[in-house]
């Protein structure tokens, strides 16, 4: 009943506003979910620190522009490179020593890495929220009629996401590195026997995943300017859910899952304003439902468990 009420009260303009919010949030989730799905595809582990890599990228961009006064496009390129390096360093320090350890140890190490990044950010940058710098070109509001204004970045985000996705799919499907990555994710041991340098492939995977996260993080910062050391936690968890919804290990699936979660979250709050306090719970309920009814995700392949 209330649903129809809310639906009836919604004008086309405010619906457009909600759709713009939902699509841009979904694109951001998609960018971050790609990193989870790539790492899981190869190492079969959740990179718990991925959300915190997003947070660090936000801080890199913030410091580049606000403190060092580097032009914003240069800062963004620098941020992407620095974040990719950070991803590789985390892999070397926290995950590589545990390559042959039980899975739970790797999981604890990942949690430790995530917690360390949060505490380090809290220590170095203080826990006070900081304001991500305005980029006049991207932060301005554009009037779309009906008294509704939509931020320019909302139009940019989906475009950048699609471009990144096309580039990434090209790398994975049509280059030698991509072939090696697919081989490692299919069968780790055989790939090693066939002469693939596993450690390099894993490093490249972390670099690409983190670079994607950095692009997402920069756009995240422009869209939602308050940055804190705990910024990456909730998006991190939700994007993992997005990766699972789409079928973990599948890049297109991660993007699909990101859009489902982002749009779903925004539209539920738009239609049921009384549920806005439960916004963060939505992703976890979706996780339970998908794992219950289709554990391999929407686009995932079925595998059987071996003894």
């Amino acid at each position: 009943m209330e649903f129809f009420q809310a639906f009836a009260n919604m004008t086309a303009a405010s619906f457009a506003q909600h759709m713009a919010n939902g699509i841009s949030l979904g694109s951001l989730y998609a960018m971050i979910a790609i990193g989870y799905t790539m790492v899981y595809g190869i190492l079969l582990m959740i990179n718990f620190a991925h959300g915190d890599i997003v947070m660090m990228a936000c801080y890199f961009a913030f410091f580049g522009i606000t403190v060092f006064h580097i032009p914003w496009f240069m800062t963004f390129i620098g941020t992407i490179i620095a974040t990719a390096l950070l991803g590789v360093v985390i892999e070397r320090a926290a995950y590589r020593p545990l390559r042959d350890a039980p899975k739970n140890s790797v999981l604890i190490s990942a949690i430790g890495a995530s917690f360390l990044l949060e505490n380090l950010a809290n220590y170095l940058f203080s826990g006070r929220p900081m304001r991500f710098p305005d980029i006049p070109l991207l932060s301005q509001n554009i009037a779309v009629g009906g008294g509704v204004q939509i931020q320019a970045i909302c139009f940019v985000i989906p475009v950048i996401t699609i471009i990144s996705l096309v580039v990434l799919l090209h790398i994975v499907n049509h280059t030698k590195t991509g072939m090696a990555m697919r081989a490692v994710s299919k069968d780790y041991e055989i790939a090693r026997v066939m002469g693939i340098n596993i450690d390099n492939v894993i490093s490249i995977t972390f670099a690409i995943g983190s670079a994607m996260a950095a692009i997402g993080a920069i756009m995240w910062g422009i869209r939602y300017p308050g940055i804190t050391p705990m910024l990456g936690v909730m998006p991190g968890l939700k994007c993992f859910v997005a990766a699972v919804v789409g079928g973990i290990g599948n890049i297109k699936g991660a993007v699909l899952g990101g859009f489902i979660l982002g749009l779903g979250e925004i539209l539920i709050v738009a239609f049921f304003p009384q549920l806005s306090g439960y916004r963060d719970a939505f992703a976890f309920i979706v996780l339970i439902l998908i794992l219950y009814y289709k554990p391999t995700g929407l686009l995932g392949e079925t595998t059987t468990e071996k003894v």
């Binding site: 996780l287 339970i288 794992l291 219950y292």
Partner: peptide
């Protein structure tokens, strides 16, 4: 529902429920 999951999934799902 949750204990049908294993390993990583269980960790995330229980973490999510603790937040819920």
């Amino acid at each position: 529902p949750v204990l049908r999951l294993r390993g990583d999934y269980l960790a995330i799902a229980t973490l999510g429920f603790s937040e819920i």
